[in-house]
């Protein structure tokens, strides 16, 4: 089977990965082109024991490591950078960023990522944990919890702290929520819908979003109220009873992709 037949189907994904890794399409494409030229010239062999896709990514890394791994300067004026998410990716050190993107974006197993990066699976696991620590530190913010049930509020608070965030306040009513944001601006709001005094978490969130832009995750036993009513954007929705992992994943997603984020007050 020729190179074209073996590698061409994987090039769209290779380009995606290269762009995510370098922060820019032009830079990513330059590395992909260099990798293909090295393969074509016979300077880089495709290891026969690897699948073509794994082999292609492996050669790409050999080229990237050898030349430009340090040149991660993202030009903010470049429209292909996708703004804040790309900047957050670039803040993860190159090696951890590779392990993170190979597994989470490209769907390689840790064993395959190890073949690509020429390290063991356990080293890949370490790199993935390091990437997560970096992401957690980058996303750390202060969180407003709008929840009137003390036990659930305590669960959510513990989970939020486990992720490395501060809890700005726990508000049981719309009024308390507005008082809390008047004192300090949160970087994330987690909101129940039906509140203690009969007030609505949706109204509280609408009031808050009228003052400033903040990612919001609704955690509710009544998701239909959000589906039928006008749902303020941008918001996420989690149904009670919730799995802690689901809430954690949603928090990471909401913060990672939110365009502008309030930092923890210094």
């Amino acid at each position: 089977m020729g190179l074209f037949e073996r590698l061409a189907p994987h090039l769209p994904y290779m380009r995606r990965y290269a762009r995510a890794l370098t922060g820019q399409q032009a830079a990513g494409d330059a590395y992909v082109r260099a990798a293909l030229e090295a393969i074509a010239a016979g300077d880089q062999a495709l290891p026969p024991q690897l699948t073509p896709r794994v082999a292609l990514y492996q050669v790409f890394h050999a080229i990237w490591d050898g030349t430009g791994a340090q040149l991660d300067i993202v030009n903010d004026d470049d429209p292909s950078t996708n703004g804040e998410p790309t900047r957050r990716l670039m803040r993860i050190p190159p090696r951890s960023r590779q392990a993170f993107l190979l597994t989470a974006l490209e769907g390689f197993s840790p064993a395959e990522a190890g073949q690509i990066l020429d390290v063991s699976s356990s080293e890949v696991e370490i790199l993935i944990s390091e990437a997560q620590a970096e992401i957690d530190a980058e996303l750390a913010t202060s969180v407003l919890i709008i929840e009137d049930e003390p036990v659930i509020a305590a669960d959510i608070e513990a989970l939020v702290r486990e992720l490395g965030h501060e809890v700005l306040d726990i508000a049981a009513t719309r009024t308390e929520a507005l008082e809390a944001v008047a004192r300090q601006t949160p970087g994330l709001v987690l909101a129940d819908i039906q509140l203690a005094d009969g007030s609505s978490g949706i109204d509280a969130v609408k009031d808050i979003l009228g003052k400033f832009d903040v990612p919001v995750i609704f955690i509710t036993a009544f998701p239909e109220r959000l589906l039928t009513g006008e749902r303020p954007e941008p918001t996420f929705l989690i149904t009670k009873p919730f799995q802690p992992e689901t809430v954690k994943a949603a928090i990471g997603q909401a913060l990672f992709f939110h365009p502008a984020r309030a930092k923890v007050a210094a």
């Binding site: 993107l101 989470a104 974006l105 992401i135 994943a249 997603q253």
Partner: peptide, 23 residues
Amino acid sequence: KGASPEDARLRQQAIGAKLRQMF
């Protein structure tokens, strides 16, 4: 500091899914 590997993987998959949409 940091999550268990399994925990980290779940959270990274959530970000990865959105990255795929973005790209």
